[in-house]
Simulated assay, not measured.
Amino acid sequence: MTNKREVPWCIPLPAIAGYQTFAPVRHILTAVDATVPQQLMDLAREHYHRFHFGNLLGTRYLHAFGQPFELPLDRVNNAFAVVGKDRVAYAKLKNILSFHTGSPHPGDSEPLERHFPVSATVICCFEPSSLQEHSGKRVVVLRVLRSLEWDPIRPNASYTGPPIPPELYPQAGQLLMTFRYRKPRVWAANVDRSGWKRSNTAAPFAILFENALEYGSSA
């Protein structure tokens, strides 16, 4: 089932856990069908206030590989809440399809400029990478499931960067590509990457690997 935006319809678990009107739904999920452990429902209730007061509005709630969600390709930040057996982790992925040209150093001939070459909202899902270059690592990639009629895939009218490689245009059924080191590359994120310069923004997606081992590999 989809809503009027052609996006999969859902009610986030913190809303079900926190709003009294969803008490019958909570009972079905925890006691009748037993599809949601009481421990997880209690955990979701702890996050209800953040959801209710707007901190998490627009956040995509994920629990499994293959779970579809909408992804605006010309947005700077995309927020996710990844729900595990005993914790919820929040991730913010920046500039998924954008790239920059120029130099960040003042006085250089070409100033730093960030480009968003494609405009669209697509339905995607996370998958564990099966690419040879990621063998033995926990790496997530994005699979494009379909485009949306109300926001189709098209060149960004304000784009002023270099020619766009055709691989950057998302295609249904294919992995999402990005532009790095002047080449089209599969967008990928290592959930276990560590470094002293900055934290790993993809670390929360480790929960998807944990859930796959605990419950199965797909949504």
Rank of each mutant, 00 (worst) to 15 (best):
P162G: 01
A157F: 13
C124T: 09
S158K: 15
P162F: 00
A188Q: 10
Q132T: 15
K183Q: 11
Y159D: 04
P165K: 02
P104Q: 07
L131D: 15
V139C: 08
L176W: 01
R182T: 09
P170W: 01
R154Y: 14
R193P: 05
L148W: 09
S147W: 06
Y169I: 10
R146A: 04
A157G: 08
F116E: 01
K197I: 14
E113Q: 14
V191D: 03
H100F: 11
Y181F: 13
W196V: 14
K137C: 04
L112P: 01
F179I: 01
A172L: 02
R114H: 06
C124Y: 03
A120F: 09
S98K: 08
N190L: 08
P117I: 03
E167P: 08
L142K: 01
G102P: 04
T101R: 06
D108N: 13
P170T: 03
Q171A: 13
P106Y: 12
H134R: 09
Q132G: 14
S130Y: 10
W150C: 10
V140S: 00
E127T: 11
F179Q: 00
S135P: 00
E167A: 15
S109R: 14
F126P: 01
G136I: 08
C124G: 06
S129N: 08
E113C: 11
G136N: 09
I123Y: 06
V141K: 04
P165S: 06
H105R: 10
R146E: 09
P155R: 08
V140M: 01
W196M: 14
S103H: 12
T101C: 11
R143Q: 06
P170C: 04
S158G: 11
H105V: 15
G107E: 13
H105Q: 14
R180H: 12
I164V: 09
S147Q: 13
P165H: 06
P128K: 12
I153H: 05
S147C: 11
A120L: 10
F179H: 05
R185E: 14
L148P: 06
R143W: 02
R185K: 13
V118W: 00
D151H: 11
P165W: 03
P111E: 07
G161S: 12
H100N: 09
